[in-house]
Design a protein around this nucleic acid. Structure first.
Lengths: 222, 222
DNA sequence: AGTGGTCTGATTGTAAACAATTTAGCTGAA
DNA sequence: TTCAGCTAAATTGTTTACAATCAGACCACT
């Protein structure tokens, strides 16, 4: 028989580990890197993703690249055309976004409920560190980083939940809300308001009141 | 530049095409076959899935098998342990199922709304053919086939929707509801009731009334 | 000039060989 | 007996090479 070392992987998905990180899993790193670049718009919609180009860029062979692209395709980040390669998929339609937003709110509320009683000081500090980075991104109007940090914040909530598979569902949903993370920031609102929204969320978490915390979290996703 | 032939694949997912089918896509066929065998319980929970064994069984090399297993892992059907292989993942917890069921209801209702006005005779006939197979499965108490046909029925609704990505979301959800499709049939209810529930759904579709159709569909998922 | 066929370049899909990692069983000494 | 360390088998992860497929250009033919 076979029994591995420890982790029950399938969905670590640290999402955005810069290439300076050491190397827990080569392939997952590639997936997270590419996903973040697509979500934040650093890789534009419709742009083709060639296996050989990516293989050269990440200094690996085509096989890990193929698996990474496959996963991103299943998440809805890229479209695959048989025998013809992948390209960054277009954003979801308006009606799809209207479907997905409440789904996402349901999932994140569920995750928060499942962890709320066990939150510790280190959890709050982790979020507050993200907030500090978010503040800088807002002040410098670095919208790509802001989107990245916003996603990182919400993902860290999901990742704390002990429920298996929640992360996978969440990513499948959020990957189809790219426009929210780009247009949502650039256009109308003062980016600082995004920052303060998240400050309010963490502060409410610290208060220990569940229902208002869920409300704060949900209202941030509209 | 590259532009493929026609299909914008990424999610055909015929789901259960017996090995007699010709061969539009080798890999997708393997994925669908394995997924169905897991959902219907033909491959038991916790059973390891060895790449070489599957490669021999499907008469292909390890590469397509790896990609298939990767996809199933992302859907939550199998668990991956680094350097140690895949095994069929355990069913979701009760609380996860309570989360997923309403999500699934929302997704299927959305799909039905998006296609309801354009339903044609051929659509009804397709569903009624599934019903006829379902009737046989109920009469012979073939619970695995019944589960398979139940899934096939609902999936065909999703597949008719023009919305891109809906199928991917749906599969991510339904893959985690395996127990519903096994325990749900074997234990309490007379299997024939499952059949009549679906008859009622199709009949309501034919009536052209949207809201009652949604109601019928949703009530089938509890 | 327009139409059809063919050839070429590029890209993905598959297969087979190789490297790295882990588990399990065995050996041997305290 | 029990436990540490070692060896070997099994399995996955990666690289490389090869086959299949498709888009586009080129050229003959009408």
């Amino acid at each position: 028989m076979c029994s591995p070392h420890q982790k029950t992987t399938t969905e670590k998905s640290e999402l955005f580990m810069s290439q300076t990180e050491f190397a827990p899993d080569q392939r997952q790193q590639i997936v997270d890197q590419l996903r973040m670049e697509i979500i934040t718009g650093r890789i534009a919609e419709g742009m083709p993703l060639r296996e050989v180009s990516l293989a050269e860029r990440f200094q690996v062979s085509r096989a890990p690249i193929r698996e990474a692209l496959k996963q991103l395709a299943h998440e809805g980040m890229v479209e695959s055309k048989p025998n013809c390669g992948m390209r960054v998929a277009p954003s979801s339609s308006d009606s799809m976004q209207e479907l997905i937003i409440p789904l996402r709110q349901t999932v994140e509320s569920f995750a928060l409920k499942s962890i709320f009683a066990d939150l510790s000081e280190s959890d709050f500090e982790e979020w507050e560190f993200i907030l500090s980075e978010m503040k800088i991104a807002c002040e410098t109007k670095d919208y790509a980083s802001l989107a990245e940090l916003d996603i990182k914040f919400h993902q860290s909530i999901i990742s704390k939940s002990p429920e298996q598979g929640l992360m996978s569902i969440w990513i499948t949903l959020v990957s189809r809300l790219r426009r929210h993370f780009l247009e949502g920031f650039q256009k109308p609102r003062d980016p600082m308001k995004v920052y303060y929204e998240h400050v309010a969320i963490v502060a409410m978490f610290r208060s220990g009141k569940l229902e208002p915390s869920i409300q704060a979290l949900v209202s941030n996703m509209d």
